[in-house]
Each structure stands twice: as structure tokens, then as C-alpha cells.
Amino acid sequence: MIRRFKLFLNPVEGQAKWLNGMASRGYRLSHVGNIFYYFEPVEAGKYQYAVDYVANKSLEHLQDYESFLEESKIRWIEKPGSIGKLSWGNVRYRPYADRGAQLATSWGMIKREFLILERENRSEPFEIYTTVGDQIQALKVRRKPYIYLAIFLSIMFLLQAFKLESMLNWSLWSYRPGNGTFSIILLGGLWVSVLISLVRFQLAIRKLKSQKEI
């Protein structure tokens, strides 16, 4: 058994690529902990992996999907993710999720943002969505939390900017101690990275649309 730590900027395609690379070197994903991935040695190239984003699914819907995967001879492993969540204690609000899944609680959903799918290797690549329409839909679902995050960060950014402005004005009643400039740089950086992700989603969706049936 070997243990690996890995973070992904792209938790769907990036993670799948890495897991497939491990599989081609003879490592099968055994389980995923809070921080680490655990692998067991197997015959090289025996398994294939794909990653699905499932944070928008309600617990009931997710369990139904998981049993469907099982009957389709696909092994699944739940993987926590941490993009675009507003959390308060053990309850997380996901405005971007489907109805019934918006309030995520630790019983079922917080640690189930992604599903890693494993099947025995076949000649063709392992794709979860095989029609262009479904691929576009899957990207739109993944884009949603970034849209909310961008709105949230914009509001935070504006609040901070006003705070800084009043600090510069040096009026006694509005001055609050604290490093406003640092917050603005941090928020601005985050905002730019979210914006880049949004543009990437948009480009990928546009590319798929051009491949749709004539």
C-alpha cells in the first residue's frame, strides 16, 4: 500500500489523468482519506478512471446514481472537494445545487463532492458523458459554483474597497484598524483565478457547441 498527497486545480480532468497515470504504472486506488490517496500494487494498466462532479446531487439522487454504477460494474469512491462552498458549522449552503441538495450536512453530502469511477481497462477512453449535449450540461453544472463564488467575491471586494477608501479619507468615524490593502490583494487574486476558471468553462462549452450535430 502506498500513500500519495495531491491537490488539483482541475479536480475532474486533472484528477482522472493522474489516477490513470498511476494505474498505468500498476497502482490501483484502494481508498481516499481526508488528505491522502491510498494505492495498492496491481497489474499495470488493469484499471481506468474517470471523475464525476456530484455536489449538485441530493443524497437520494447520489445514492441512486451509485447503485446504478455498481450494477454497471463500475466501482466508485467518494472524494471530498472544497470549491465554492459557504460553510457554517456542519451545514454548508450550496446555492448552485439542485433542489434538495442546497443545504449540505455532514451526514451525507459534505464529503461527496466528487465520485471517482473505476472500471476494468477497455480499449477506448473512459468517458462518463458520451453525448455532446450531456458534456455541455456537465460543464454547466460544474461552472455554477464558480459563478456564485465570483458574485460573492465581488461583493467582498467592494466592501473591502469601501473600507479602504474611508481609511484613506481618514475620517475619524469611518476608520477601522486592519490591513485593508492586503485583503483587497488577496480577494483580487482569488477573484482573478475564479474568473480564469469561468473563462475556461466558457471556452470549453463553446468548443463543444461547435461540435454538436449539424
Partner: peptide, 12 residues
Amino acid sequence: VVFGPGTLYGAI
């Protein structure tokens, strides 16, 4: 035609 599991699940 090979269906991916996500596509098949959604269509069913």
C-alpha cells in the same frame, strides 16, 4: 455507440 455511465443514467 458506447454509452458512458452518466449519459445512460440520465437518459434512463
